[in-house]
Design a protein around this nucleic acid. Sequence first.
DNA 1: CTGTTAGCGCGTTCAA
DNA 2: TTGAACGCGCTAACAG
Lengths: 342, 342
Amino acid sequence: MAKKNVTIRDIAEKAGVSKSLVSFVMNNSIGADGKKRYRVSDVTRERILKVAAEMDYQPNSAARALRKGRSRVIGAILSDMANIFYGIIARELENVAAKHGYTVLFGSTDEDPRKFEQLVRSFIDKDVEGFIIVPCEGSGPSLQYLMKTRYPFVVIDRHHPDFQIPSVLTDNADMVDQALRILGQQDCRNIEMVTYGMRVSSMTDRENRFRERMGGEKAESHIYRLPFDRVEEEAENVANQVAARGTDGLILASNVLSVAVIKALLRRGIHPQRDIRLVGFDYSNVYEVFDPPIPYIVQPLEDITRQAADYLLKIIEVKERGEDISGMKDVSVLKGIVQEYK
Amino acid sequence: MAKKNVTIRDIAEKAGVSKSLVSFVMNNSIGADGKKRYRVSDVTRERILKVAAEMDYQPNSAARALRKGRSRVIGAILSDMANIFYGIIARELENVAAKHGYTVLFGSTDEDPRKFEQLVRSFIDKDVEGFIIVPCEGSGPSLQYLMKTRYPFVVIDRHHPDFQIPSVLTDNADMVDQALRILGQQDCRNIEMVTYGMRVSSMTDRENRFRERMGGEKAESHIYRLPFDRVEEEAENVANQVAARGTDGLILASNVLSVAVIKALLRRGIHPQRDIRLVGFDYSNVYEVFDPPIPYIVQPLEDITRQAADYLLKIIEVKERGEDISGMKDVSVLKGIVQEYK
DNA sequence: CTGTTAGCGCGTTCAA
DNA sequence: TTGAACGCGCTAACAG
């Protein structure tokens, strides 16, 4: 009932010392790595720690954040936490952050720039020290705002064509080459591709390479672009077209697209792998239940996330030292991982 | 470079008024619901708001949290954010929380009580006002700690046998009845069940009803309990047993179990639905790619999450008013949703 | 070397 | 409409 939060002062009183000393002990007692320049006698220190433990002292992070100007929280703006793709990112982010004493606020944009902006506002309002961001179409202004206000952030999965920002990406063009190689080895003659209608680099880079390899503009009619919020319905159309055109190889540029198209094909009696060869992108457990299993290509999500988080933390440290951040715009591009079956 | 965070004082100066007045305006200008007892002249108020907008003022939430004793953050302790089951919960939680001006910290336990405790500590350290919790085996002490310290929390998906705590659950026994009905209608004679080895109510409740319906103790040998961290390997064993015993109906008590067992069956040439009838639990996109589709039963996750979040927020409000919390231990049990195909 | 004093950070709130 | 104290932990400066 009486929400008696123990403060540093309560401990000081009970231990018969000053607030400062308690604070000092609490801060130094955390990590005793290397040089421990305690200015406290062992006896007093033990006593203080004992009292603190007895009273189950939990420092008030608001007070600390206020004083130090650091919240030890970072924000992650992803597309959709209910998609395993972002779930994996969230897990890794959680781990890396925890290792450095940080916690993470997560938010989903659903590819809506207004939600994107709201999340930026809301996270800034919570005093996050920086962001991990999957930009969406139309998020440019928000990113510029972050740049202008010198907020540390690192972008993953997609780059923004208009400005240079710290990013950790995957070589999408190469992934498409791999997909084409796999389909080619299966003697596919009529290859098509399914992507999202939204214009984000992960999709456009894949389309561009596909178009390039398939003979330029005339390949354009072999790219299906499904609207992000109506994938299910439009997948039916893809299945129809594929049947009509005699497509024998299909690249599915995301896990959500894969699932939707596979189901639509099945509903039309077109059996994946038997009647048409597929190559998927991203993790999904539907790929492996077919015979032969559907090969797929994934981004090294854990590596990407780890690199991005490490870089973000580095930027935050540099900024915290009062140094200039504006040069820290490294762009790292990793290779995709191909999962195929002999 | 110069991290010049705009404070309330900057605005006060530029607008030629006092800090207090700025604070007053900022707080009243947010939600003008019902009686707006502004004690400020419209002219001054407008001027202040204009200056604030110009300077792009963002209140420092640490200062506010410190003063008000409220962080507007809640913590969610789930099992695994990379599992769509928890991803859905996370999404809904994010939405409900945002609607009430809250943000959510998420953490995954991986069913490890030590991680569970760490998360509790870490979230308390971040001053969360309450928790949404999926308890894991061995999390009892941490829950007791939360009860003792009067931390508001609501449990979902699983209840704890030893103490009464606010919970929003699903009728697991009924879900098993539904599964048995479906298999019965398909004339299955030898029905078995696959669950997790971990002793959490969502699993034990399902096992218990299964045992009950299948004739008590002698059904025990028809329950496979797979260790949470070795599902893949043990699923092979299930597939072997099923083949040897001529099992013709199998209940898969979670999406992860479903995927693992289905793959193991396929590796042995046992085709789901053709050679053995299955009923799955939780969402997964593998169910629908079989012919006929595998029926499955899900918890109404959005409803559960919404109810739990609403209740948590209510508890927080009551507590904040200084009233007693200890009576708020409502337990709500919802019905599962059956997804079957004519 | 051990420990204390005092003031700060910033938004909120109450008395004036 | 304002001045001033407050919440709580941090830390520079200083005393024993």
